[in-house]
Simulated scan of single mutants.
Amino acid sequence: EEDGFIYGRGTVDTKQLTVMELAALLALAENGEQRKRDVFLLVTCDEESGSALGLSAFLEETVSAGGRTITGKELFENSEVISEGGGFPILVGDTAFYLCESGQKGCGTVEFTVEARNAKGPFFGSGDGMVRAMKLVADIGALELEQRKLPTVARFEKRLSECADGNCHGDSGAERASDHFREALSPVMNNILTAMNRNTMTVTMIQGKSVNQVKVICDVRLLPGYGTAYLKEITDRLAEKWDAECRILSFSEGYESQPEGGLIGCLEEATRMELGEDGKRAEVLPFISMGSSDGRFLVPMKAKVYGYSPVLSWDMTFDQAVSMVHGVDEKIHRESVLFGCRVLENAVCRAVCGRIHQ
């Protein structure tokens, strides 16, 4: 810690959330009020490496809860979950929008293998395999996949548009947002907003031991509602065109949790209360994340997963947080950590006890 800032890997992604959630659980245990819901704190490892040893394993295990033995999957059935991926504000007009991740795009990896039909050695032409592989890469680069406006994204754009027009009360009567509000957003946020509206497939690696066989590896991000069948239709068409083999190495479907009310309402109420006078110009705004986290494992359990670890806007905005994650000099101010602790304490107490904890 130096000058109030805490430095270290994970201070923004996401050891700060662990601290905030622990504070909320301790506050709930100490206040002694009647609870109408059970609350669990689950801290797992391995999320950056696929979660095979973390949440994925936990869901298959049995645990003791409330005097009975249940599976990890049962624990999460129809639950509301506070996870990673949000809490960082963006500023539009005089409003601070605290982003809350309420959904994720599906994430996967696809591998195309192109074999040379007329193999040649390195002292001759590269052969038709390499040529076809490069044409496949060009095709993928020019690919325009389907677009869809999710309810969460439509509401996201509408609120930003209203505030960019100075109408944060939302009484304009406009049903849809115009695109001019994008001028008030940073390049990073504009890119993310574009990605929230479309499916993408991007070539990330080209490899091969010789000119006779080339592998093209692609990252795939699909909106909630698009699954393996849609992905296979696209990859089969490309593979057939360029006489290639294709394998879907991995794919997890995206999800979209309820973007308003319930736990989100409690989070917004607690955030505004902790901000004091500034809370009048603050709002929790759900969004769809491009990244993938452990929330994807909870979709079959019908869990509502919300990413939220709120920080103070003078400490970092969304853009600044994104630039620090997995980077150099990752840091957070101690006041942001304490702020987030108080917000989650109050929100959880509101959700399970029926009132804000004092």
Score class of each variant (00 low, 15 high):
33 E>K: 13
100 C>R: 08
100 C>W: 01
41 L>C: 04
51 S>I: 11
102 S>A: 15
57 A>V: 01
131 V>L: 12
119 A>C: 04
77 E>V: 13
72 G>P: 00
87 G>Y: 09
52 A>C: 04
112 F>Y: 14
74 E>F: 07
30 E>N: 13
124 F>E: 09
34 Q>E: 15
73 K>L: 11
105 K>F: 04
128 D>Q: 07
53 L>T: 03
133 A>E: 05
71 T>F: 01
98 Y>M: 05
106 G>H: 10
126 S>K: 14
134 M>Q: 10
111 E>C: 14
88 F>Y: 13
75 L>D: 02
53 L>W: 09
100 C>S: 15
40 F>R: 12
101 E>T: 05
50 G>E: 10
96 A>H: 09
108 G>T: 04
53 L>M: 12
79 S>G: 02
116 A>L: 04
126 S>E: 14
49 S>I: 07
101 E>R: 15
28 L>E: 08
36 K>G: 15
72 G>F: 05
46 D>S: 05
41 L>A: 01
123 F>N: 08
25 L>V: 15
34 Q>A: 12
88 F>W: 12
48 E>M: 07
45 C>D: 08
104 Q>H: 08
101 E>W: 00
79 S>H: 02
59 L>R: 10
138 A>N: 13
87 G>M: 06
108 G>D: 08
51 S>W: 02
48 E>I: 10
105 K>D: 02
108 G>R: 09
126 S>A: 13
126 S>R: 13
76 F>D: 11
102 S>M: 03
40 F>Y: 12
114 V>A: 08
83 S>G: 10
51 S>D: 08
56 S>R: 15
42 L>S: 10
55 L>D: 00
106 G>V: 03
25 L>D: 03
77 E>G: 00
32 G>M: 07
111 E>P: 00
97 F>A: 04
62 T>M: 02
70 I>P: 00
26 L>C: 05
34 Q>K: 15
103 G>N: 09
42 L>D: 07
80 E>M: 12
133 A>M: 07
40 F>D: 10
107 C>W: 13
134 M>C: 07
